[in-house]
Simulated assay, not measured.
Amino acid sequence: MPALYNRVNNDELKRRMLESNEERVTLSFYQYHNLDNPERFRDELFLRWSKLGVFGRIYVAKEGINGQISVPEQQFEAFKTDMYSIPWLNGARLNISVDDDGKSFYKLKIKVRKKIVADGLDDHTFDVTKRGKHLSAQEVNNLLDNPETLVVDMRNHYESEVGHFEGAICPDVETFREALPLVEDMLEDKKDKPIIMYCTGGIRCEKASAYYLHRGFRHVHMIDGGIIEYTRQCKEQGLPIKYVGKNFVFDERMAERITEDIVSRCHQCGAPCDDHINCANDACHILFIQCPSCAEQYSHCCSKACSDFNNLPEEKREELRGQLEFNGTKFGKGRYKALRKDEPLDIS
């Protein structure tokens, strides 16, 4: 039976990807659909798309599919044909990345999940098909000219930190699940105002807009295709882009640049910077923003403690692993107060 999972070492796969000159297209897509057997569909999809050289991360659930992938340019049409041959995926939007070097993914992972986006909602309590109105880029810009319009970023703080729409409400949350009740509370007395919600590719807003309509908000809109499609349409039609900075993406690139504006700062020294990295100490691995100067000073680590740990002999690191707690040990995302950069490693 053909393999249904990758069997090559991750480091080797990443090396191959970085050294490859193959032209690839990075894209995202999603579709809500009732799947009776997501496990069987997952296996079929892995066999079909691995043959086409597809890399990326795909989640399959009983409610549908959510994917961020890259496809060899020479196989792109074959991939579209194959995807659209699946009846319920025929015509699904493909959000093509706007700033792509082809190095976004290095292997194909398809996982079965309870939901294609973790939202914490009970879908049986409201009609998920009664969602907000989709807006084109021109319609977004027109509605933004209305001073009554509220713009809400439905992403996490580390996403909105490096880029957002002008004047957007950006919840200080680490998960979409946290954002839903927080935004509802923030806008409780504004249910009659026009609201534009946005996220990376639109999937989070599909569910959120239906939920907020259910909760009594009257004029809920969402950007069709999210930031990715909005930017593409603006560039194609010569429209002013009212999103500033970078669009955070969940792949090896970390972000794609939308405008040259730098709206965030290095978490260690405060210098203007919008480059996310993961701490080089694998026992920490916290996601944070680091400028080139601090990267050199702290050896691409988030703190002196992590830098000191990485400089220990491998045997010593293995001995201490699990005994020490670093900034990212509990899988939190970086914040200024979390990066205690000058505290040395204490192994006493």
Rank of each mutant, 00 (worst) to 15 (best):
P2R: 13
L4N: 12
D11G: 06
E23C: 01
V25L: 05
Y30M: 02
Y30T: 11
Y30K: 09
Y32W: 04
N37A: 02
P38Y: 10
P38E: 02
F41S: 03
R42W: 04
L47K: 15
R48V: 05
S50H: 11
L52M: 12
G53L: 10
G56I: 03
V60A: 07
E63Y: 06
G64M: 05
N66V: 11
Q68S: 14
S70H: 04
P72K: 11
E73P: 00
F76R: 15
E77I: 09
F79S: 05
K80A: 01
K80V: 01
D82I: 02
I86M: 10
L89C: 05
L89M: 14
L94K: 04
N95H: 10
S97Q: 03
V98Q: 14
K103D: 02
K103A: 01
L108E: 14
R113E: 14
R113L: 00
K114Q: 10
K114D: 13
T125E: 15
V128F: 04
H134Y: 15
A137Y: 07
N146V: 12
V151T: 13
M154E: 00
V162R: 04
G163K: 06
A168Q: 11
D172R: 12
E174R: 03
A179L: 07
L180K: 08
D189L: 07
K190E: 13
I196P: 07
G201W: 07
G201M: 13
G202H: 09
R204I: 06
C205G: 07
E206T: 06
K207Q: 08
Y211G: 06
Y211L: 14
G216V: 06
I223L: 07
D224V: 00
I228F: 12
Y230H: 05
Y230I: 13
Q233Y: 05
Q233H: 06
C234R: 09
K235F: 02
Q237M: 11
K242L: 13
V244W: 00
F248G: 00
D251G: 03
E252A: 10
E256M: 14
R257C: 01
E260W: 03
S264L: 05
I277H: 03
I277D: 02
N278A: 03
C279K: 02
N281M: 03
D282C: 09
A283D: 15
L287K: 15
I289P: 00
A295M: 08
Q297P: 00
S299L: 09
F309H: 07
N310K: 12
N310G: 09
P313Y: 08
R317V: 13
R321V: 00
F326S: 08
N327T: 14
G332N: 13
K333N: 14
G334Y: 07
G334C: 09
A338D: 14
A338W: 07
I347M: 10
S348K: 14
